[in-house]
Design a protein around this nucleic acid. Structure first.
Length: 784
RNA sequence: GGACUCGUAGCUCAGUUGGUUAGAGCGUCCGGUUUACAUCCGGAAGGUCAGAGGUUCGAGCCCUCUCGAGUCCACCA
C-alpha cells in the first residue's frame, strides 16, 4: 500500500486506495489550484507569450447550474487549461448576468405567493428588492462551477449590473445616439400582455395553434379573419390590384354595417393581398397587425388601437363619443327606432369594454349571428401565431413608442469580416446561419417595460412635455396616475420621482440622452434596456470595467464558446456591437456546442422528468467523470445524448488513471530497462500521440481529442505498454515518462484525478513541476 | 415557402486535408482473478457506412438526385 502526502500541505495524508475516490480529492485539489495562483494570468504578459482569452458566457445570477452550463464549463476549461499549459497568457474571465426579464419574472412569482405584485411598489424599491434577491442566490452558480473544476480567474469576476460595466455599456448607447443609430419610434412592438413588456423579434416564437376562423359580412363583401375583435378599428379594406372581382371597388369609400353600427371604409389596392386566400379581400388594422401596420404607413392610414397593454378590449373611443350615447342630449331628436338601435350598439360597446380577447370572440360570435353578419365560422382552423418565448401566451402587436437600434450599418462590417474569414465559426453549418441572419436582421427594439435592468438614460423635461403620462405611488403609498402637467399642480416633482412606477412619453416627446440627470425638472424613462444590449458588449465591457490595462492586454479575445441556440441572440450581436464600439471584432474563433439530451436522445425538460442535474452526477461519479461524459466524441454544433452509462464510463476512466499510476509507482524500484527496440517504438508512438492531441485541440476538435487520448491511454498505454513492462520488455523509466505525458494530455479533460496523481508523483520526487495545472504541455521531445 | 443539419455495429455516437483489415462507450456471447484496476483483462459475434448515380488509381468523407429524421427562419389576413 502506498502512502503519499501533499507537498507542503500539512497533515494531508494521501492513501492510494485500489479505488479512486473523487469525493476525497476534488475539493482539496481545487483549493490547491486556487492557492497556487494558477487561475489568474501573471501580472504582466511574458516575453513572447501569446494572449488567450475566453470571456465566459455569464449564467443568470440567480439560477443554479444545469447540464448546459456544465457543458460550457467543461469545454472552456479544457481550452483554457490547454493554453495555460502551452504557456499562453491565458485568461478565463467569469461573470454573471442579471437576466432582466427572466429574473424579474421569477421574483414576481415569489411576490405573487406573498399576495403582492410589482404594482405595489415604486420602481426604485422593486429594483432594490430584486437586487437583494439576486444577491442571496448569486453564489450558487459560482460554487457549482468551481465544483466542476472551472479554472477561471475569479479575481476578475464581473456582474452585468456592476456600475463600471453599466457605464461602459451606456457609453455605447450614447455613441449610437450621436451616430444617429438610436431612434425612438412608434412601431408595432411584440407585446406580451401577460408578461407586461415588449420583446424583440428574436424573442417571439411562431406556433401552429387552433384558432376560430370567421367569415364576416362586410358591406358588399365577405372578409375572412382570425382576429375579428380588431375589426372595430379597421381603417381600410385591401384587395389585390389584379383581382378582377374587386377591381371596380378600388378607391371607393363604402358604408359597412358592423356590430356597432355603420362605418365608412375605403378600398385600397395592394400587391401584398393574396387573391387566393380567404375571400381575397382583407381588412386592414394597422394598430394590431404588423403587415397592416406597414400597409397603413404606405397608404397613410391612422393607427387606432383597440387592445390595451393589459390585453383587454378598449372601447373608450366609442363610449367617449357623445354621438354614440343614446341618452346624450345631442341624440334627443332621434326617432324611437333610431334610438333603439343606438341603445343596442351602446350597450354592446359597454359589454365589450374591458373584455379579454378570448371572451370577446365569444360575445362577438353571438352578436354576429344575431345580426346575420356571420357567414361562416370554422372552429378548427389552425393558424401560425406569434407567442411569447417565456410564457407561451399570444403576442399582441401593439403600437408603442420604443427605442430602436439601426442594425444595417452595424452589420455591414461584420458581414465583410465573415467573408474575409477574419473569424471562424465551429459548428455544423452555423456560419451560414449567421450570414443569413446578418443579412436579414431587422432593427432592434431595446426597450423593456421592466425594472430589473439598466434603466434607459433618456430624460424628459416636464416643462416642455406637459403630456407625459405618469404613474407613481404618493407618500401615503397610493397609486396616482395622470398627465404630468396636472399632477404637478398637487405634487412636487420630487415626490413623483421618488414614487415613480411608470412613465409613458408620447412619441413626439423631446428627450435628452444622458447618464446623469440634466436638471431638476426632468424625469427619467422608466423602461430598461434589453438584457442582450449589455451582454452584446460583454467581451469589452468586462475588460474595460476592470482596467484599461486589461482591455489592452486581453482584447480582442480569442474564443467565444457557447451553445448554438443563442447564436443570434448573443453571438451575432456581440460581433456587431463589439466591432462598432471598439473597432475590432470581439473574438476570432466561435465554438458552438450542441445541446445535451438524455440517454435516449430526447430533449431534457422538467415535464418529462429527464433533466440531469450536473451537480448530482458530479457528486456520484466525480466532476471528471461528468466532464468526460459530456465532451467525449462531442461535435461542435451537434446535440449529444448523455446518460448514466456515460457517466459510469467516465468514472471508470478516472479509476483506470488512478490504478495505472499506482502500478507504475509500485514497480519503479524494479528498475526494468526493457528492450531497446520496444523502447524506441514506445517513444515514437508517444510523440505521435502528443502531436495528435495537440493538433486536435488546436483545431477545436475537442470531442475527438478526448476520444483519442482516452483510447491511447487505456488501450495502448495500459493494455499494451504496462503489460510489456510487466514482462520486463519495456523500461520503467519509459513508462514513468509515458505516465507524466498522459497525465498532462488528459489534464484538461479530467483535471482532478490527474492532479491528484501528479501530487503523488511530486511527493515521490518524480516530477519537478509542483502542480499539473501549472505544468507545461508536452512536446514531442521526450524530456518530460 | 426558404435555410441548415443529420442518416455509420442492438443503442448513443466518433471517424481530423479522400489513402491499408471502418472505431469507442454501453449492451450480447465465451473465457480469465497468486497481488494496478471485476469501476478489470483476453477473445467473439454484430456494419452492402440510408439508397442510386457520378468524380477519382482510390469515397464513410467530394458532386448530383431520391428517401427518411430533426432544427431554425418565414407576412398567408
Amino acid at each position: 500500500m502506498l502512502f503519499a502526502s501533499f507537498q507542503r500541505e500539512r497533515d494531508t495524508i494521501w492513501r492510494m486506495d485500489s479505488r479512486y475516490d473523487h469525493s476525497q480529492t476534488e475539493a482539496k485539489i481545487y483549493q490547491l489550484w486556487a492557492k497556487s495562483g494558477a487561475f489568474a494570468p501573471a501580472k504582466t504578459r511574458g516575453k513572447g507569450q501569446k494572449p488567450f482569452t475566453i470571456i465566459m458566457p455569464p449564467p443568470n445570477a440567480n439560477d443554479p447550474l444545469h447540464v448546459g452550463h456544465a457543458m460550457f464549463v467543461t469545454i472552456e476549461d479544457i481550452l483554457i487549461r490547454f493554453h495555460r499549459m502551452l504557456g499562453d497568457d491565458a485568461l478565463w474571465l467569469p461573470g454573471t448576468d442579471h437576466a432582466g426579464i427572466e429574473t424579474q419574472f421569477v421574483f414576481e412569482k415569489k411576490l405573487k405567493k406573498e399576495g403582492k405584485s410589482r404594482f405595489d411598489f415604486d420602481r426604485e424599491t422593486l429594483y432594490q428588492m430584486i437586487g437583494d434577491y439576486v444577491q442571496e442566490n448569486s453564489g450558487v452558480a459560482l460554487d457549482q462551477m468551481k465544483k466542476l473544476g472551472a479554472s477561471a480567474d475569479w479575481s476578475r469576476f464581473v456582474f452585468t449590473l456592476d456600475k463600471k460595466a453599466v457605464d461602459e455599456a451606456l457609453k455605447t448607447l450614447l455613441k449610437l445616439h450621436q451616430d444617429g443609430l438610436l431612434y425612438r419610434d412608434e412601431q408595432l412592438v411584440n407585446y406580451c400582455t401577460h408578461c407586461g413588456t415588449a420583446f424583440s423579434n428574436l424573442e417571439v416564437e411562431h406556433e401552429q395553434r387552433p384558432a376560430g376562423f370567421y367569415k364576416i359580412k362586410y358591406g358588399p363583401f365577405v372578409i375572412a379573419t382570425a382576429r375579428p375583435e380588431t375589426k372595430f378599428r379597421d381603417t381600410a379594406l385591401a384587395v389585390n390590384p389584379k383581382d378582377k372581382r374587386y377591381k371596380k371597388h378600388i378607391g371607393q369609400t363604402l358604408e359597412v354595417l358592423g356590430l356597432l353600427g355603420p362605418t365608412k371604409m375605403t378600398v385600397i389596392a395592394d400587391e401584398h393581398v393574396d387573391p387566393e386566400f380567404g375571400t381575397g379581400i382583407m381588412k386592414v388594422t394597422p394598430a394590431h397587425d404588423p403587415h397592416d401596420f406597414e400597409l397603413g404607413k404606405k397608404h397613410h392610414l391612422p393607427v387606432t388601437p383597440i387592445i390595451t397593454l393589459q390585453g383587454r378590449m378598449d372601447f373608450s373611443w366609442f363610449l367617449n363619443d357623445p354621438a354614440n350615447d343614446p341618452e346624450n342630449p345631442v341624440n334627443k331628436n332621434l326617432s324611437s327606432q333610431a334610438k333603439a338601435l343606438k341603445t343596442k350598439y351602446w350597450q354592446r360597446a359597454q359589454k365589450y369594454h374591458g373584455l379579454k380577447v378570448k371572451q370577446m370572440h365569444e360575445e362577438m360570435r353571438e352578436d354576429l349571428m344575431k345580426d346575420g353578419l356571420l357567414v361562416d365560422y370554422n372552429p378548427n382552423y389552425t393558424n401560425t401565431i406569434a407567442v411569447c418565448y417565456r410564457c407561451q401566451n399570444p403576442i399582441e402587436p401593439l403600437p408603442l413608442p420604443q427605442f430602436f437600434i439601426k442594425v444595417k450599418p452595424l452589420v455591414e462590417p461584420v458581414l465583410q469580416n465573415l467573408k474575409n474569414k477574419k473569424f471562424r465559426v465551429y459548428g455544423a453549418g452555423y456560419d451560414k446561419t449567421l450570414k443569413h441572419w446578418l443579412k436579414n436582421l431587422n432593427d432592434w427594439n431595446i426597450s423593456r417595460q421592466i425594472v430589473w435592468g439598466i434603466r434607459m438614460p433618456a430624460w424628459y423635461s416636464t416643462k416642455t412635455n406637459p403630456d407625459l403620462l405618469v404613474t407613481f405611488l404618493n407618500q401615503a403609498g397610493q397609486k396616482t396616475s395622470g398627465q404630468i402637467s396636472e399632477l404637478l399642480k398637487t405634487h412636487s416633482i420630487k415626490t413623483i420621482n421618488q414614487g415613480l412606477q411608470e412613465l409613458r412619453a408620447p412619441l413626439k416627446a423631446e428627450y435628452v440622452l444622458s447618464t446623469d440627470s440634466p436638471g431638476a425638472e426632468y424625469l427619467q424613462e422608466t423602461d430598461t434596456l434589453d438584457t442582450w444590449f449589455s451582454s452584446s458588449q460583454w467581451p469589452f465591457t468586462t475588460l474595460k470595467s476592470l482596467s484599461k490595462e486589461d482591455f489592452k492586454r486581453f482584447y480582442p479575445t480569442q474564443v467565444m464558446e457557447t451553445a448554438y441556440d443563442i447564436l443570434v441572440f448573443w453571438v451575432m450581436r456581440m460581433l456587431f456591437m463589439g466591432q462598432y464600439a471598439t473597432g475590432q471584432l470581439p473574438f476570432t474563433d466561435i465554438y458552438l456546442h450542441g445541446l445535451i439530451r438524455d440517454a435516449k436522445g430526447q430533449k431534457m425538460s422538467k415535464s418529462k422528468g429527464n433533466v440531469v442535474n450536473p451537480l448530482t452526477v458530479a457528486e456520484k461519479y466525480g466532476a471528471d467523470a461528468l466532464r468526460m461524459a459530456l465532451v467525449i466524441r462531442s461535435t461542435a454544433g451537434l446535440d449529444k445524448a448523455v446518460g448514466e452509462q456515460d457517466f459510469r464510463a467516465g468514472r471508470n476512466l478516472t479509476n483506470k488513471i488512478w490504478n495505472a499510476s499506482r502500478f507504475i509507482l509500485g514497480h519503479l524500484d524494479k528498475n526494468q530497462t526493457g528492450e531497446k527496440k520496444l523502447n524506441q517504438q514506445f517513444a515514437k508512438k508517444l510523440s505521435q500521440t502528443i502531436q495528435t492531441i495537440t493538433q486536435n485541440l488546436n483545431q477545436f476538435q475537442i470531442g475527438l481529442a478526448a476520444d483519442t487520448v482516452y483510447n491511447q491511454f487505456w488501450h495502448w498505454y495500459c493494455d499494451e505498454c504496462i503489460e510489456l513492462g510487466k514482462a520486463n520488455k519495456l523500461g520503467g523509466q519509459q513508462l514513468l515518462t509515458g505516465l507524466r505525458v498522459f497525465l498532462k494530455l488528459m489534464h484538461p479533460f479530467v483535471p482532478f484525478v490527474t492532479e491528484a496523481v501528479w501530487q503523488v508523483l511530486r511527493q515521490h520526487d518524480l516530477t519537478v513541476e509542483p502542480t499539473l495545472i501549472g505544468a507545461s504541455w508536452p512536446t514531442d521531445s521526450l524530456a518530460q
